Computed example of a mutant assay.
Amino acid sequence: MDTLIGRQTEILGDVRFSGGLHVDGKIKGKVIANSDKAASLSVSDTGLVEGDVRVPNIVLNGAVTGDVHATEKITLAAKARVNGNVYYKIIEMEGGATVNGQLVHEGEAGRAPAALTQKPADDSVDQLSEARRAKGL
């Protein structure tokens, strides 16, 4: 880890970093990794982030209030708590971890696969209408 935010430390404002960041304290603001695909964030069970997180690799055992974007991998340990959506490419989740939001898998291009985003045609309504017409209803 390149940077440590200690247990008694509270940061007000966005944090931009490269390399590794470990949070034992509190951040009130966004946490964003600079253009470093190997950048990693770890939040201990005493750590708290109140804001969105955009980091390629995340190990979370603390709390995040905001959306979490892990462009590579996220590990949610047993004490992890997320109040927001989790966007991920690879996810590992231990028993006890909680997410109060949606889990959204993102494909290689950073968005959901086309098969998941396209609305399927609903033929059941047409079939029901045909059945009713056939019975004279």
Rank of each mutant, 00 (worst) to 15 (best):
E108P: 14
N57T: 09
I90D: 14
Q127D: 13
G47S: 06
V31P: 07
D2I: 07
V15C: 00
V125W: 13
I90C: 10
T71W: 05
T3D: 00
V104R: 04
S124R: 12
E108W: 06
G6L: 07
E50D: 11
D14N: 11
Q127L: 14
K28F: 10
T46F: 13
V59L: 12
G51T: 02
S18W: 01
Q118E: 13
T71S: 15
P113R: 09
R54Y: 06
S44Y: 05
K89W: 07
H105G: 04
V99C: 07
Q8E: 12
D2A: 14
Q127A: 11
Y88M: 02
D122F: 08
L137T: 00
G101Q: 05
V53L: 02
A131Y: 14
G20D: 11
H105D: 00
D126T: 13
N57G: 05
M1H: 13
A131N: 07
H69R: 08
L137H: 04
D67Y: 03
V125Q: 10
E130F: 14
L12Q: 14
A114H: 09
S124C: 06
V55S: 03
A121G: 08
L4F: 05
G29Y: 02
A77L: 13
A78C: 09
Q118F: 13
R81D: 02
A97W: 00
G136M: 04
L76V: 04
A70K: 00
K89M: 09
N61P: 02
G25A: 06
V125Y: 10
N57V: 09
A114L: 15
T65Y: 14
T117R: 11
D122N: 13
G101R: 05
R16E: 03
Y87M: 10
M1K: 13
S18N: 05
K37G: 10
R7D: 05
G25R: 01
K89H: 15
R111V: 09
K30Y: 05
S124N: 11
G66D: 01
V49G: 00
V125L: 14
N57R: 10
Q127F: 10
H105T: 02
G13D: 06
A80R: 02
A114C: 05
G6Q: 11
K28H: 12
L12Y: 05
D14G: 10
G51Q: 02
K119S: 11
G19N: 05
S35M: 08
N83D: 13
I90V: 15
T117P: 01
E130V: 12
S35Q: 08
G96A: 06
E106I: 12
K37T: 15
T117A: 06
V55Y: 02
R111W: 04
T71G: 08
D2C: 09
